[in-house]
Every structure is written in structure tokens, then in C-alpha cells.
Amino acid sequence: MRLLRHYARLLAVQMRTSLTLAVQYRFDFLLEGALALFWLAITLIPLLVVYSRRESVAGWSFPEALVVVGWFSVLKAVLDGGVTPSLNFVVEGVRKGTLDFVLLKPADAQFLVSTARFEPWRILDFLGGIAVLVYAFHRLGRAPGVGDLMVGLALFGVALILLYSLWILVVSVSFRVVKVDNLSYLFISIFDAGRWPIDVFKGALRLIFTVVFPLALMTTYPAQALLGKLTLAHALLAWTGGLAFASIARFVWKRALHAYTSASS
């Protein structure tokens, strides 16, 4: 219990540092707000074009697909605001050797690097995603049921775990292959496919997006849950998959850290 309190305080300190950094650039708030709208528009355009030609695609109507996009935008905000900044921090640390200072600190290294950096302004993208979700249900003419909402939120947890695990895996790779500035680009570019319902994809892509890089679990399943289309069995399966993924990630991280010899030695 004391340990937990200790880490909660550590988290608060790390977040305060990021917040102090962010409010130094207050003007960025406006800029980021404008950019959030811009990117949301770019995300929506292909969807609008597709649905201007068809009533439904792979069994998804326009408002239903919007639910997926809204969910995707929310997750993307979490990714950009809470995950990618820390990823870049570690990759840079590995290259410059400054990661050693983090590893020397008397706290769990995985915890420290995962909370190293936040970008608070991303809350705007988050709100944009929520707005899309609300509009989608407005178009559907109904609100999600309480039970569906609960399952949806539970799956949000799975999505967060998966995002975080994938991130830990990427960081573990960066220990071995040092020059990997591009890894975070790769991560984001694959994640971008999550704006489409998984049913759109066939064959190899579908397999990859379900098992290898489980986008389906992150965006399609939660959207289906909110729409009341997900069976309980599927939800449980998603949770099991998420937990399995997380334990693999933790294992790989431990192995990678063990093999890490720092840039200087």
C-alpha cells in the first residue's frame, strides 16, 4: 500500500513537470486547438467520400463507422499525449546515453520511462473525439445503453493496455537497434488504420490487425460494444487477449533491459 502511494506521488511529480513545461508555451494552446480540428477533418474526409458513394460498407452504416472514428480519435489523443512523448524520450535516451540516469533512480524503470513526458494540450484532440462520438449517436437517434456503455469503458481499458504494451515492445526494440527515430512514425502510421472497422479488411491485413497489431481490439470492438453489437464472449476474449499481450510485453521489456549495455560501454 505504501509502495502504491509512493508511485502515485511519483506520477504526480512527473505530470506536474510536463504541465509546467506545457504552460510555458501558452500560445501553443491555440495552435494545437486549430491543428486538432485540422487533423480531425483530414481523418473524416475519406469516410465522408466513401459514404457519399455507398449507404453501408462491409456492414457498417455511416453513423456506426463514425463511432469507430470517434473512438479512434480519442485513443489517438491518448497515444499522442501520453505515449509517444515518452517513447521519443526513451529512444533519444538510448542514443545519447542519458537513459542510464533514469535506470539508476530507485524506482521501477518501466514506470519511470512510461511516465517521463506528457503533452497536456492533447486534451483538445480527446474532446474532438468525444464530440464525434456524441454526433454519431445523435445521428443514430439513440444513446448507448448503460450496460453497453460499461462494456465499452471496460474495453477502453483493454485498448489502453494494448497501446501501452505495444509501446513497451517498441521501446524494447530500440535497445537493440539504436537508430530508430522512425519507429514512432511506424507505430503511428500503423495505428492510423484503426479508424476503419476491421470488417473492411480481408485476408492477411485482417489477421495482422487482429492478432499481431490488435487494432480490432482497440477500436472496432469498443465501438461494437457501444453500439450494443458485441457479445459478452467477444468482450471477455478481448480482455484475455489484452492481458496476454501485456504480459508478453513486460517479459520482453525485462529481457531487453537485461541485455541493455548503454551507449557508452
Partner: peptide, 10 residues
């Protein structure tokens, strides 16, 4: 590739 998958489905 993702857009290709999408449009061929459409």
C-alpha cells in the same frame, strides 16, 4: 494499402 483494402471492399 489500407485505402486499397477499403476501396476494393467498397
Amino acid at each position: 494499402l489500407v485505402m486499397m483494402a477499403l476501396w476494393t471492399a467498397v
